[in-house]
Nucleic acid binder design. Structure first.
Lengths: 184, 184
DNA sequence: TAGTATTTTCAGAAATCTCTGAAACTTCTG
DNA sequence: CAGAAGTTTCAGAGATTTCTGAAAATACTA
């Protein structure tokens, strides 16, 4: 049940970083624990491993489920609920990306959309309007782009990532070709 | 000095969202204020506009400067310090991205790098090791990719974004061409 | 240099967030 | 159905973060 020195450090680091990542310390630690452990764990085991109260574990698990990062498993003949991570590291990364987009970007986007409907009344409002429009367009582009990335296969992603700085060349090339082909 | 209804709503929304974005309410509000206002403002004006203490404004401005999001300006004949945003919305977006990468990713990356040097002693450690390696590779890829994006010109970025889902096609095409050319 | 304007700092107040643990609730077994 | 096993809830304690405002420090002017 005890964690290796490494695993312990990993879990505790995740706890420290978690607030930057959008959840609180215990939630981060629970997730990290489930990531490093190879078997699924029940709430009591988690509570003991991390030295946090049973109630806190329950809340943390609920939060992680709302993020769709963990999955409940039942073991026949055992009444307890067991938990594991929902998918591979990169599956989880996608989920976190998407979930954060929903929480961090979407509300702002919809506020901006509303405000952009009004017409600016003076110079000052004109400036504000322009800035908001710029932010809106940027966020929208990002959102769309994130959507595309999320729909790409792991292989495509890998290929894209490997391309790296070379993407510029490919774009030029593509522009040239498609320009000739059908002026798109 | 008073803000339009819209601008006010924008500022206050930013205040609410700011904690998700890595800074506290007042810091977010100060930034939003400087974004919507067309002229640079001094600390007293900010303090009055947002109804927050002078000391708090001073701390907030310092924080925003550490993020390299705002710029100090001096007006000849006026002893006060005046502040504006440092660059356009998309300049600021790049800065925030990079700064967040430094704070959210880099520390984890370096921890993982350290741990990956050790050799796993048993099955359980083996699993932990594998997971950490996977996370490490993913974060590294993301970091590199973010670097490339940051080095691309706005035009290239635009072009890439417009491509959207079509990126898959381009990749296939590129793989075919380069495959024939030099079997890369 | 003395005096004034401006900014920064920081101790403690206020607000917010997190955690505990006991009670309430749910689910299962015989 | 009664009792046991397990989970969830939530009021209040504890910890952390943010904010204020007065005092200290700095920068400018004459």
């Amino acid at each position: 049940m005890d964690l290796s020195r490494q695993a312990e450090a990993f879990v505790s680091h995740f706890g420290e970083m978690s607030s930057r990542w959008g959840f609180n310390r215990t939630v981060g630690q629970i997730l990290a624990l489930l990531v490093v452990r190879s078997t699924s764990l029940n709430a009591d085991e988690i509570s003991q491993s991390l030295h946090i109260s049973r109630g806190n574990v329950s809340m943390g698990l609920k939060e992680l489920q709302s993020w769709r990062l963990i999955r409940l498993e039942r073991i026949p003949g055992d009444r307890k609920d067991y938990f594991t991570t929902a998918g591979s590291i990169s599956d989880m990364a996608r989920t976190v990306f998407e979930e954060r987009r929903k929480r961090e970007i979407d509300p702002t986007l919809s506020l901006l959309r509303d405000h952009l409907l009004d017409t600016p009344a003076d110079e000052e409002e004109m400036h504000a309007h322009k800035q908001m429009a710029e932010l809106h367009d940027l966020l929208e582009l990002l959102t769309q782009w994130a959507g595309h990335l999320n729909n790409m296969s792991p292989e495509q992603l890998q290929s894209l990532m490997k391309l790296g700085a070379g993407i510029g060349k490919v774009l030029e090339f593509k522009d040239k070709v498609s320009g000739k082909k059908k002026d798109a």
